[in-house]
Deep mutational scan, measured.
Amino acid sequence: FDIYVVTADYLPLGAEQDAITLREGQYVEVLDAAHPLRWLVRTKPTKSSPSRQGWVSPAYLDRRL
């Protein structure tokens, strides 16, 4: 999967189903980028939180090589 970094805090609107909150600087794996406005991502697990999966706007993501 492609690795992206979150460029700004992402707080989903209440109406968005299956969306997750992301923090600036967080790394995520993009699982599904087929839709231009919503990408399915999975967060990297940390010592304090397990990995999470949900939909985010790709405008908040920047690809890492």
Rank of each mutant, 00 (worst) to 15 (best):
F1T: 08
F1P: 10
F1I: 08
F1G: 10
F1M: 09
F1H: 11
D2I: 11
D2W: 14
D2L: 14
D2A: 14
D2C: 13
D2T: 10
D2G: 12
I3E: 08
I3L: 11
I3W: 15
I3D: 05
I3Y: 10
I3A: 04
I3K: 04
Y4F: 10
Y4A: 07
Y4V: 03
Y4G: 01
Y4R: 03
Y4I: 02
V5Q: 07
V5T: 05
V5P: 01
V5A: 04
V5G: 02
V6R: 00
V6Q: 00
V6D: 00
V6F: 02
V6W: 01
T7K: 11
T7R: 10
T7G: 04
T7P: 01
T7A: 06
T7L: 12
T7Q: 05
T7Y: 03
A8I: 08
A8D: 05
A8P: 02
A8S: 11
A8F: 07
A8L: 08
D9H: 06
D9M: 05
D9K: 06
D9R: 05
D9C: 05
D9P: 05
D9Q: 05
Y10A: 03
Y10N: 04
Y10R: 03
Y10Q: 03
Y10C: 05
Y10V: 10
Y10F: 10
L11W: 14
P12T: 08
P12G: 07
P12D: 06
P12E: 06
P12R: 06
P12K: 06
P12L: 08
L13P: 12
L13M: 13
L13D: 15
L13K: 11
L13A: 13
G14R: 11
G14F: 12
G14N: 13
G14D: 15
G14W: 12
G14I: 12
A15S: 15
A15C: 14
A15N: 15
A15E: 14
A15F: 13
A15P: 11
A15H: 15
A15L: 11
E16N: 09
E16K: 06
E16V: 08
E16R: 05
E16H: 09
E16T: 08
Q17P: 14
Q17K: 14
Q17D: 13
Q17T: 14
Q17F: 12
Q17R: 11
Q17S: 13
D18R: 05
D18Y: 08
D18N: 09
D18G: 14
D18M: 07
D18I: 04
D18W: 09
A19F: 12
A19E: 11
A19D: 08
A19P: 06
I20K: 02
I20T: 03
I20V: 07
I20Q: 03
I20N: 02
I20W: 07
I20R: 02
I20A: 03
I20Y: 06
I20H: 03
I20S: 02
T21D: 10
T21P: 14
T21K: 09
T21S: 13
T21V: 12
T21H: 13
T21F: 14
T21L: 11
T21M: 13
T21R: 11
T21Q: 12
L22S: 00
L22I: 04
L22N: 01
L22H: 01
L22A: 01
L22E: 00
R23W: 13
R23Y: 15
R23H: 12
R23T: 10
R23N: 08
R23M: 11
R23L: 12
R23V: 10
R23P: 03
E24D: 04
E24F: 11
E24G: 07
E24H: 10
E24R: 15
E24S: 11
E24C: 13
G25S: 02
G25I: 01
G25Y: 03
Q26W: 11
Q26P: 00
Q26V: 06
Q26K: 02
Q26D: 14
Q26H: 04
Y27W: 13
Y27G: 03
Y27I: 14
Y27K: 06
Y27P: 03
Y27R: 06
Y27F: 13
Y27S: 06
Y27C: 10
Y27V: 13
V28A: 01
V28E: 00
V28G: 00
V28Y: 01
V28C: 03
E29A: 06
E29S: 05
E29V: 10
E29D: 06
E29H: 07
E29K: 05
E29G: 02
E29T: 08
V30F: 01
V30P: 00
V30M: 02
V30N: 00
V30G: 00
L31P: 00
L31T: 02
L31W: 03
L31S: 01
L31Q: 02
L31G: 00
L31I: 12
L31F: 02
L31C: 03
L31A: 01
L31M: 07
L31N: 00
D32W: 11
D32T: 04
D32C: 10
D32P: 00
D32Y: 09
D32G: 02
D32R: 04
A33Q: 12
A33C: 15
A33Y: 11
A33V: 05
A33P: 06
A33K: 15
A34M: 10
A34C: 11
A34Y: 08
A34R: 15
A34E: 10
A34Q: 13
A34H: 13
A34V: 09
H35V: 04
H35E: 08
H35P: 03
H35N: 15
H35W: 07
H35C: 09
H35A: 06
P36N: 06
P36M: 06
P36K: 07
P36R: 06
P36H: 07
P36V: 06
P36T: 06
P36G: 06
P36F: 04
L37R: 08
L37V: 06
L37N: 13
L37K: 09
L37M: 11
R38I: 06
R38E: 03
R38V: 05
R38C: 11
W39M: 01
W39T: 00
W39I: 01
W39V: 01
W39H: 00
W39Y: 03
W39D: 00
L40N: 02
L40R: 04
L40I: 02
L40W: 10
V41Q: 00
V41T: 01
R42A: 05
R42T: 03
R42G: 02
R42Y: 02
R42N: 02
R42P: 00
R42E: 03
R42M: 05
T43Y: 06
T43H: 03
T43L: 07
T43S: 06
T43K: 02
T43N: 02
K44G: 06
K44W: 15
K44E: 09
K44Q: 14
P45H: 07
P45L: 05
P45K: 08
P45N: 06
P45C: 09
T46G: 08
T46F: 08
T46R: 05
T46V: 05
T46L: 06
T46W: 07
K47R: 12
K47F: 11
K47T: 12
K47N: 13
K47C: 12
K47D: 15
K47E: 14
S48T: 13
S48E: 14
S48C: 12
S48V: 10
S48P: 04
S48G: 14
S48R: 08
S48L: 12
S48W: 13
S49Q: 14
S49W: 09
P50N: 06
P50S: 07
P50W: 04
P50M: 07
P50I: 07
S51H: 04
S51E: 07
S51Y: 07
S51N: 03
S51Q: 08
S51C: 06
R52F: 10
R52S: 10
R52K: 13
R52W: 12
R52T: 11
R52N: 08
R52L: 14
Q53K: 08
Q53W: 08
Q53R: 07
Q53V: 14
Q53M: 14
Q53T: 15
Q53L: 11
G54I: 10
G54N: 02
G54V: 11
W55N: 02
W55D: 01
W55E: 01
W55T: 03
V56S: 01
V56R: 00
V56I: 10
V56F: 03
V56C: 07
V56N: 00
S57G: 03
S57H: 11
S57C: 08
S57I: 05
S57F: 04
S57M: 05
S57D: 15
P58L: 02
P58T: 05
P58M: 04
P58S: 08
P58E: 02
A59W: 07
A59Y: 08
A59R: 10
A59Q: 12
A59E: 12
Y60F: 12
Y60L: 06
Y60K: 03
Y60G: 04
L61D: 01
L61G: 00
L61C: 02
L61Y: 00
L61T: 00
L61N: 01
L61R: 01
L61K: 00
L61I: 04
L61E: 01
D62K: 15
D62H: 11
D62F: 09
D62C: 13
D62E: 15
D62P: 02
R63M: 11
R63T: 07
R63H: 11
R63E: 07
R63V: 10
R63F: 15
R63D: 06
R63L: 15
R63K: 14
R64A: 15
R64K: 12
R64S: 13
R64N: 11
R64L: 15
R64T: 13
R64C: 15
R64D: 13
L65Y: 14
L65F: 14
L65C: 12
L65V: 14
L65Q: 13
